[in-house]
Amino acid sequence: MTRVIKYIFYDLLRTRFILLYTLFLLVSTFAMFQIDSDPGKVVLSLLNVVLMVVPLISVVFTTIHFFNSYEFIELMLAQPVNRRVIFFSEYISVATSLCGAYVAGIGIPSLLFGADSSVFTLLFTGVMLTLVFVALAFLSSVLTRDKAKAIGIALLFWFYFSLIYDGLLLWVVYTFCDYPLEKITLTLIAFNPVDLARIIMLLQLDISALMGYTGAFYKSFFGSHMGLLFSSSILLVWIALPLWLAMRIFSRKDL
């Protein structure tokens, strides 16, 4: 497995995209620290970038990489190599290089400018989001043979979780605002990894008071250790489920 991973890494590094991604994150984090000296505010600004950009880059890069390495996958499958090994090697390589780029890009400037613990939460949520969206992109890649279609499905995942889902949630909350909705919205949030990441982050930044009564409720839930454990395990399910589905499809796919 390490041999296969080695070759995928080699291929990933040669495209230089990962390097550009790291550079982009580095520059934007540096810029934010230049504009504002309060690390809390910087993290909040970064959060908005991270919640949109990280999933988008993850899905697009993963799908393009998967289809570009189709020949490699085909070649490996005619050799004495297990299909699962190939699949997980692909996932591990893509996920670690994207996570590495993210941690380096956000982490290095934050360390230089002196950051508090909220940066670690930001790094954690970003890494989790990368893992989730790389898994979703793998799922969309094995669903179809057509590169354009796969990118379309992957982008749809991004669009849905970043924009559409929030709209729907808002609509639900607005329509049923006469009823106690705390527990229901809590459940509904679990169905969206991006929202989950956002809430973990907002509570860490101690601005939940801005969210009123619901914020206080979330604070009492997500702020506790149980809440953090709950949200992290839901995010893990968001990684494992698409990955498992994708692997099942991949292990029966005709090439």
């Binding site: 085909e74 499958l77 005619a78 299909r83 029966r252 796919k253 005709d254 090439l255």
Partner: peptide
């Protein structure tokens, strides 16, 4: 291809 496992 089915002998090689490329086609199931």
């Amino acid at each position: 291809k089915s002998l090689l496992g490329l086609v199931v």
